[in-house]
C-alpha cells in the first residue's frame, strides 16, 4: 500500500465519524432507558390527589362521566401535534370548536390548556420528557401558557 500513513489515518477518521453515536453514547451520553409511557407519566385521573381541586369550569364532561382521552393512546402518541394543528385552524378560521374523533365520538369545546392539560397538567413532566428526548421544541408554547389555573 502506498501512502499507508495517510490512507490509514483517513479510514480511521471516517470510521470514527460514522460510529460517533456509539462513542458518544458510551461516554458523554446519559444512561439510556426506554421511556415507560404507561407508567411514568403523571396524569390526573378522577379520584387522584388534586383532581377535586381542579376548577369546575374545566370539566370536560358536564355529566361527570370518567374522563377518557379524545383519541386512543397509540393514536395520540403519533398524531397529537396534527390534531392540535387542525383544531387551531378549525377554531380560528372556521369557528368550529368540537372535535370528532376517529372512534366516532364528538367532543365539545376543545382547548389545549383547558382540555388536554386538565389531565396532563405538568408540561415539564408530561410533554417535555418525550419532546426533549426526541429533540422536539414545539413553538406552540411561544404563545400558549403551559399551565392551567390551579394546576402545576
Amino acid at each position: 500500500m502506498h501512502d499507508a500513513g495517510k490512507v490509514v489515518a483517513g479510514i480511521a477518521v471516517f470510521a470514527g465519524l460514522v460510529t460517533a453515536p456509539i462513542w458518544y453514547q458510551a461516554s458523554v451520553g446519559g444512561a439510556v432507558q426506554p421511556l415507560d409511557l404507561s407508567r411514568d407519566f403523571p396524569v390526573v385521573r378522577p379520584g387522584a390527589p388534586g383532581f377535586e381541586d381542579l376548577p369546575a369550569d374545566l370539566a370536560l364532561n358536564p355529566d361527570g362521566t370518567p374522563r377518557e382521552c379524545v383519541e386512543p393512546t397509540e393514536f395520540m402518541r403519533a398524531n397529537h401535534m396534527a390534531i392540535l394543528d387542525r383544531w387551531r385552524d378549525q377554531v380560528v378560521r372556521e369557528d368550529v370548536h368540537d372535535y370528532r374523533s376517529t372512534t366516532g365520538k364528538t367532543w365539545p369545546h376543545l382547548k389545549l390548556t383547558g382540555t388536554c392539560m386538565k389531565c396532563h397538567q405538568k408540561k415539564a413532566e408530561f410533554c417535555d420528557r418525550c419532546h426533549d428526548r426526541a429533540g422536539e421544541k414545539p413553538y406552540c408554547w411561544d404563545c400558549h401558557l403551559d399551565r392551567v389555573a390551579g394546576g402545576r
Partner: peptide, 23 residues
C-alpha cells in the same frame, strides 16, 4: 444521541426557520 446535542437543535431551528405546519 441522548441527550440531543445543541448543534442538532440549532440545525433543526434553522432548517425549520419558516415554522410552516406542525411539525
Amino acid at each position: 444521541l441522548e441527550p440531543v446535542p445543541g448543534f442538532v437543535e440549532v440545525l433543526q431551528d434553522v432548517d425549520g426557520f419558516f415554522q410552516v405546519w406542525v411539525p
